[in-house]
């Protein structure tokens, strides 16, 4: 038994990595593909924008945060610092969020899952794990001046500025399910939801956003610029 354990193993041959999307014509459907994701009649001054960031790469990284080799390996492969508890780091394409003391979630462009996984395995060694969970979850984006009000209705976690600054990531209860909530900007939130709960959470968010004026789809450039300087007073501020 001990002979087997002590034998030097070639890690490259021990791990089977599969390119789950080898060519662009492999059919893929997001868990929200059946939902109508664009407003036919958009409200005049929408308070909430809701859209899906579909078919992205989701990689779960496990390892020891106190291991310098692991930290440096992640940094070399992704260009991102390993975030501290409840924090996230972000580059143009990739985002790395803290999930647990030994677990992180890396999200990025959908067609680069295999390339990133290969790069990570090249830079990491020892006791670690890289798991492609792209098919198991999806990203739902919530934006607009009333996006926080929708979250306040939907989850027990305190989403006030003083407790939830930009860049923070929290795994918590959302509606009667759960979600990983990350704050990208003043009025910009990202939810990681399980595939099987995506439909439920999408419908919940549509219902909860109704009273604020819901626009399904991303805000256009002009709207985004106007809303980055919100003139509307927020009653829950302060």
């Amino acid at each position: 038994m001990s002979e087997v354990i002590n034998k030097t193993v070639d890690e490259a041959t021990q791990v089977a990595i599969m390119d789950q999307c080898p060519t662009a014509d492999v059919p893929a459907r997001s868990p929200l593909a059946h939902q109508d994701q664009s407003s036919k009649v958009a409200p005049q001054n929408p308070g909430v924008f809701l859209w899906e960031d579909a078919l992205k790469t989701h990689l779960v990284l496990r390892g020891d945060a106190n291991n310098a080799d692991f930290r440096q390996g992640i940094e070399a492969a992704t260009g991102l610092d390993l975030p501290e508890a409840l924090q996230s780091t972000q580059s143009d394409d990739w985002a790395l969020g803290w999930i647990a003391p030994d677990e992180w979630l890396l999200t990025g462009p959908g067609d680069q899952a295999f390339a990133m996984e290969t790069t990570l395995r090249k830079h990491l060694s020892g006791h670690y794990a890289v798991i492609n969970v792209s098919g198991g979850q999806t990203l739902v984006r919530l934006a607009g001046p009333e996006a926080r009000s929708v979250l306040m209705k939907s989850c027990p976690y305190d989403v006030h500025d003083r407790n939830f600054p930009i860049g923070k990531i929290v795994n918590t209860v959302l509606a009667k399910s759960q979600a990983t909530i990350r704050r990208l900007g003043e009025n910009d939130w990202e939810l990681v939801v399980r595939r099987s709960f995506a439909d439920y959470i999408w419908r919940w968010l549509m219902d909860a956003s109704g009273e604020y004026g819901l626009h399904l789809g991303q805000p256009d450039a002009a709207t985004a610029a106007r809303q980055s300087n919100p003139s509307r007073a927020n009653p829950v501020e302060g």
Partner: peptide, 12 residues
């Protein structure tokens, strides 16, 4: 003690 925060009971 791992998240370093107080959370609602329904998370536990």
């Amino acid at each position: 003690p791992y998240c370093g925060e107080h959370r609602e009971e329904e998370e536990f």
